[in-house]
Measured scan of single mutants.
Amino acid sequence: SPEEIKAKALDLLNKKLHRANKFGQDQADIDSLQRQINRVEKFGVDLNSKLAEELGLV
Protein backbone atom coordinates (compact mmCIF):
# COMPACT_ATOMS: atom_id res chain seq x y z
CA SER A 1 0.00 0.00 0.00
CA PRO A 2 1.16 3.60 -0.49
CA GLU A 3 1.34 4.12 3.29
CA GLU A 4 3.67 1.13 3.75
CA ILE A 5 5.86 2.28 0.87
CA LYS A 6 6.05 5.76 2.39
CA ALA A 7 7.00 4.31 5.80
CA LYS A 8 9.75 2.14 4.28
CA ALA A 9 11.09 5.09 2.29
CA LEU A 10 11.15 7.39 5.32
CA ASP A 11 12.89 4.68 7.36
CA LEU A 12 15.57 4.24 4.69
CA LEU A 13 16.09 7.99 4.23
CA ASN A 14 16.30 8.62 7.98
CA LYS A 15 18.96 5.89 8.27
CA LYS A 16 20.92 7.52 5.45
CA LEU A 17 20.57 10.93 7.12
CA HIS A 18 21.75 9.54 10.45
CA ARG A 19 24.79 7.93 8.77
CA ALA A 20 25.57 11.14 6.88
CA ASN A 21 25.56 13.12 10.13
CA LYS A 22 27.50 10.45 12.02
CA PHE A 23 30.29 10.20 9.46
CA GLY A 24 30.43 13.90 8.61
CA GLN A 25 29.40 13.91 4.97
CA ASP A 26 29.10 17.14 3.00
CA GLN A 27 26.36 19.51 4.10
CA ALA A 28 25.03 19.39 0.52
CA ASP A 29 24.46 15.62 0.85
CA ILE A 30 22.71 16.09 4.18
CA ASP A 31 20.51 18.86 2.73
CA SER A 32 19.67 16.64 -0.24
CA LEU A 33 18.56 13.81 2.06
CA GLN A 34 16.46 16.24 4.10
CA ARG A 35 14.76 17.50 0.93
CA GLN A 36 14.05 13.89 -0.12
CA ILE A 37 12.48 13.17 3.27
CA ASN A 38 10.29 16.28 3.01
CA ARG A 39 9.24 15.34 -0.53
CA VAL A 40 8.29 11.78 0.50
CA GLU A 41 6.31 13.08 3.50
CA LYS A 42 4.33 15.45 1.27
CA PHE A 43 3.89 13.45 -1.93
CA GLY A 44 4.79 9.82 -1.23
CA VAL A 45 7.22 7.79 -3.33
CA ASP A 46 7.39 8.19 -7.11
CA LEU A 47 7.65 4.67 -8.54
CA ASN A 48 9.96 5.96 -11.30
CA SER A 49 12.51 7.34 -8.84
CA LYS A 50 15.86 5.97 -7.76
CA LEU A 51 14.42 5.67 -4.24
CA ALA A 52 11.78 3.22 -5.52
CA GLU A 53 14.58 1.15 -7.07
CA GLU A 54 16.47 1.10 -3.77
CA LEU A 55 13.33 -0.13 -2.00
CA GLY A 56 12.92 -2.89 -4.59
CA LEU A 57 9.60 -1.57 -5.93
CA VAL A 58 10.67 -1.49 -9.57
Rank of each mutant, 00 (worst) to 15 (best):
Q25V: 13
F43H: 12
N48K: 10
R19T: 12
A9T: 02
L12H: 11
Q27C: 07
L13V: 00
L13W: 00
N48I: 05
G44W: 01
H18K: 13
L17R: 02
L33M: 03
L17I: 06
D46H: 05
R39W: 15
L12E: 07
G56D: 06
E53S: 08
S1Q: 09
D29T: 15
K50P: 15
P2D: 13
R35V: 09
L55E: 02
K16C: 12
N21S: 12
A7N: 12
I37G: 00
Q25N: 12
K42Q: 14
A20Q: 04
D11N: 05
L33Q: 01
L17K: 03
V45L: 10
F43A: 05
L12P: 02
L57A: 04
G44V: 00
A20N: 03
P2I: 10
Q36Y: 04
V58L: 10
P2G: 10
L55V: 05
Q36R: 03
E4V: 10
A52V: 05
H18R: 12
K8C: 13
N38A: 15
I5Y: 07
G56V: 04
K50E: 13
Q36A: 10
N48S: 12
Q34V: 15
D29A: 15
R19H: 15
Q34S: 06
E4K: 07
H18E: 15
I30R: 05
H18Q: 14
Q34N: 09
A9S: 01
S32E: 15
I30G: 02
Q36F: 05
N21Y: 10
I5P: 02
L51G: 01
K16W: 06
I37D: 01
G56N: 07
L51W: 06
K6F: 03
E41L: 08
N21A: 11
D26R: 07
A7T: 12
E41M: 08
N38W: 05
L12S: 05
S49A: 03
E4L: 10
L47N: 05
E53C: 12
V40A: 02
G24A: 09
G44K: 00
Q25I: 10
K22V: 14
N14E: 09
P2M: 14
R35W: 04
G56W: 04
L17D: 01
V45K: 00
F23E: 15
Q27D: 07
I30K: 05
S49I: 02
K22F: 12
P2W: 14
K15E: 13
D29V: 15
H18N: 12
E4Q: 11
E3M: 08
L51E: 04
K8W: 05
I37R: 02
I37F: 00
K42R: 12
I5T: 07
E3D: 13
L12G: 02
Q34G: 04
L33P: 00
N21R: 15
G56C: 06
E53V: 14
A9G: 05
V45I: 10
N48Q: 09
D46I: 05
F23L: 15
N21H: 14
Q36I: 12
A7K: 14
K50L: 12
A28M: 10
L13K: 00
K16Y: 05
L10G: 01
A9L: 07
K15Y: 02
N14P: 00
G44N: 01
A52P: 02
V45R: 00
V40Q: 00
Q27V: 08
V58G: 10
N14L: 14
E41G: 05
L57C: 06
I5V: 10
L10W: 00
H18W: 07
N14C: 14
N21K: 15
N21I: 15
G56A: 06
N48A: 10
L10D: 00
I30D: 02
P2K: 11
G44D: 02
K15M: 08
N21G: 08
G44R: 00
A7Q: 13
Q36E: 13
Q25A: 15
N48D: 10
A7D: 08
E41Q: 10
D46S: 08
K16A: 10
S1C: 13
I37Y: 02
K50W: 12
L13M: 03
G56Q: 08
F43Y: 13
L47I: 11
L57V: 07
I30L: 06
A52R: 03
G44C: 02
L17W: 02
E4T: 11
A28F: 09
S1V: 08
L33Y: 03
Q27G: 07
G24H: 08
E3W: 07
E4P: 04
L10M: 05
L47C: 08
R39S: 14
K8P: 01
A9K: 00
D29S: 14
N14V: 09
S1E: 08
I37E: 00
N38S: 14
L51D: 03
L55S: 01
Q25T: 12
F23N: 14
I37W: 00
V40R: 00
K22Q: 14
L10E: 02
L12M: 09
K6W: 05
L47F: 09
Q27A: 12
L51R: 00
L51Y: 04
D31R: 08
G24T: 06
V58C: 11
K42E: 14
N14D: 05
L10R: 03
G56L: 06
D26S: 14
K22T: 12
L17C: 03
K15N: 10
K15F: 02
N38G: 10
F43S: 05
L57S: 03
L47R: 03
N48C: 12
K50D: 12
D26I: 08
V45P: 03
L57K: 04
E53W: 13
L10V: 04
L33K: 01
A20W: 08
R39L: 15
D29Q: 14
L33S: 00
N14A: 09
A7L: 13
K15V: 07
K50T: 12
G44A: 02
S49N: 04
L57T: 03
F23K: 11
L33G: 00
G24W: 06
H18S: 12
A7I: 12
D11V: 04
K6S: 04
I5Q: 07
S32A: 14
K50M: 11
A52W: 10
A9F: 05
L57F: 11
L51T: 03
I5D: 05
L51K: 01
I37M: 04
Q34D: 02
L12D: 03
D31E: 13
I5R: 06
L12R: 05
F23Y: 13
L57E: 03
S32P: 01
A52D: 02
K8V: 07
K15W: 03
L17A: 02
G56Y: 04
N38L: 06
S32F: 13
N38P: 00
K8F: 05
V58S: 12
D26E: 09
N48G: 11
S1G: 12
L51M: 06
Q25M: 13
P2R: 11
Q34P: 00
L47D: 04
A20G: 03
G24P: 11
F43V: 06
R39Y: 15
N38C: 13
G24Q: 08
L13P: 00
L13C: 01
F23T: 14
A9I: 10
K42F: 06
L10K: 03
L55G: 01
K22Y: 10
K42S: 09
I37K: 04
K6E: 02
D46Y: 02
E3G: 07
I5K: 03
I37T: 00
E53F: 14
A7Y: 08
V58M: 10
I5M: 11
S1H: 10
L12C: 09
L33V: 05
F43W: 10
R35L: 11
V58P: 08
F23C: 13
L17H: 02
Q36P: 00
K50I: 09
L55F: 03
N14R: 15
L57N: 03
H18I: 14
R19Y: 15
F23S: 13
E4W: 14
A52G: 04
G56R: 06
D11M: 05
K22M: 14
E53D: 07
D26T: 11
F23M: 14
S49P: 02
R19L: 15
A52E: 02
L55R: 00
K6Q: 06
V58D: 08
V45T: 02
G44M: 00
K8T: 06
I30F: 04
V58E: 08
E3T: 08
L33N: 00
K6G: 03
I5W: 13
A52H: 03
N21P: 03
E4D: 13
L33T: 03
A7M: 11
K16L: 13
L17M: 08
R19K: 13
